[in-house]
Design a protein around this nucleic acid. Structure first.
Lengths: 339, 339
DNA sequence: TGGGCTTCCGGAAGCGTTCCCGGACCCCGC
DNA sequence: GCGGGGTCCGGGAACGCTTCCGGAAGCCCA
């Protein structure tokens, strides 16, 4: 593997010149530049990243941690991140935390070791120790995607979860539903709490605060199935259920079809995220769509901003969501049982 | 950010000793070790990755390139890779190539720059120049997942695509179908060609070689829809279609429901991969399941093998697949039109 | 012709590690 | 008491690059 010295020798220049040709071509004369480039080419030289990084204290790598990379919601965000990062000359490292604190720590450490220039974490949890160490005096190169938690003190890009949840519920009430089941994500996450707030305010406005039944899920299809089972076991089962993500909604759909409740005739289901498969469910899933690619792009814009010093406070970017009405929601089977 | 010198100073030892404590603790006395560890702790020191990498010529990073990270098939493989890599102390970098040669080149270069120790590429395409440069004399630290292409000369982990496709077709013929449509992936990939070979051999064995209608897709849902449209426009439309992945099958399902062909009564559909959503389609998708996590794990095992010199030839690991019969396949509507 | 400015290039330090080599010290047995 | 062996530790070079600084050369204009 050739080094810069080999190139310098072959081109009969100093290593300084080779370095210049490669990173500040305009500072070297046409003739030498050509000579150097030719040598680079002949030797198949490419600069050693570690040496460069050691010298410049920069890696041009971004770390993205995510609770579950197999979730299509996250993988689309990652795609947006990757695309935006590449465009700016950064490459991305990926960490799947499974919501495991130890893994979060481990990935967080990569920032301290300077293995990466910055960190984007999707979901709510991040390594405590790392953020503590980092933000000694100023904003650490850490941003969040999807959630908004002002007390974390990191910039983030996300939709207005409270408003979106309000909208989803409003759709259901508008259709005539009174007894609505809600399948949340883990309540540890601000995202779930924000959405729950939207749910409750909407319920109050519709004078139906008592009739919402809240069940906790964990965003998996399986927990959607389990949640549906719990909801349907109530003495007054809901005529509609609002799930905090599409996968749980898929679980509910599955459960409903297995127990013979047709959707939307006897049960309405609404999801959240609008993953790619939502519209291909039968019935097609009504859901709140999030601009995943944009969330991804926006997080890298923020991160590069703090890296360059143009972002100096924990700004929070709100991206637009949209209620996507498809076929899984409709009027309740008959006038609601109670007022 | 403290360096090894700071630690050495505080612990009143040399940097050599600090280094030893951190990587060969047994070579240093109990007392000093404790002193050093205490200093490390107090300073919050963590070794600079670039410096270490420069010195040791190793990064403990693996690069994974994938044609489309938003595809659940790939994201599960990636999850397997990430898990296995982490267990061995490696972290993973991710590159989404979109099948774009330029991007492939760019990611491939990371190997040359020694930004990563090895490369796992999913799908069929890899940077030519890179592989050329690398394998001067011995096996390059490059392995493949999903495909098997002996002429590439890299180790790989995959299912027996030919046999699996044969099995899928066999299932359809067994059900009584004669006119079968096949929706392939890009024929540039050996994977598609392997499966096509399985399709054709099975068709011949059933004396129906002439009745298979092959249409090319690109593994997207949209191309599944388009492919279905072409298939149904034939003068003798197929009574069953075999798609080379589940997403295209989902597209076919969608098209069928829109044109009022019920599945499986009037059309059978079979997919490939068994992505997580396949079983939640309505009707639930019959498909060939692949062990995605294992494919991922196996590729890192192979890669670490060549890194350690225990894998010295382009071995090819075949993992088991399984025909998953669900509700999207059934007998054809009536005795086939022609023999 | 000569002085100052610009352009282009080379020398060399330094980034933070690892690890080879050798020195100091201790212990033990003769 | 002394040599041999073992254990611990420190000095310092090396990894491959970037960049500061200064020198050489060329140019222009007075």
């Amino acid at each position: 593997m050739p080094t810069i010295h080999d190139v310098a020798a072959r081109a009969e220049v100093s290593t300084a010149t080779v370095s210049r040709v490669l990173s500040n071509p305009e500072k070297v004369s046409e003739a030498t530049r050509r000579r150097v480039l030719k040598a680079v080419d002949q030797l198949g030289y490419s600069p050693n990243a570690a040496a460069k990084s050691l010298r410049t204290l920069t890696t041009r790598k971004l770390l993205v941690t995510v609770p579950d990379i197999a979730n299509p919601f996250f993988s689309l965000i990652i795609q947006g991140i990757e695309e935006a990062a590449l465009r700016e000359g950064y490459s991305v490292m990926l960490g799947d935390t499974h919501h495991d604190a130890q893994r979060e720590e481990r990935y967080g450490e990569m920032l301290l070791r300077r293995e990466v220039d910055g960190l984007i974490f999707l979901g709510h949890s991040m390594s405590k120790s790392v953020s503590a160490t980092m933000k000694k005096n100023q904003l650490a190169p850490i941003v969040n995607g999807c959630e908004y938690s002002p007390n974390l003190g990191v910039p983030s890009a996300h939709v207005d979860n409270e408003a979106a949840a309000h909208e989803a519920m409003s759709h259901l009430y508008g259709l005539g539903h009174r007894n609505i089941g809600v399948l949340t994500g883990p309540l540890a996450s601000p995202l779930s709490r924000d959405r729950l707030r939207g749910v409750q305010s909407c319920a109050r406005e519709n004078g139906a605060a008592k009739q919402v039944m809240v069940v906790n899920g964990d965003f998996s299809i399986e927990s959607g199935i389990a949640g549906a089972a719990r909801l349907f076991a109530q003495q007054v089962p809901p005529t509609a259920v609002f799930c905090f993500n599409d996968e749980m909604a898929i679980g509910v759909l599955d459960y409903a079809s297995r127990v013979g409740r047709s959707v939307p005739e006897s049960l309405s289901v609404i999801g959240f995220d609008d993953i790619r498969f939502a519209r291909y469910m039968r019935p097609a899933l009504t859901t709140i769509s999030q601009p995943m690619l944009d969330i991804g792009r926006e997080t890298v814009r923020l991160l590069l901003g703090v890296l360059q010093g143009t972002v100096t406070t924990a700004v929070s970017i709100t991206l637009p969501h949209k209620l996507e009405i498809r076929s899984s929601t409709g009027a309740p089977p008959r006038p609601a049982a109670k007022t």
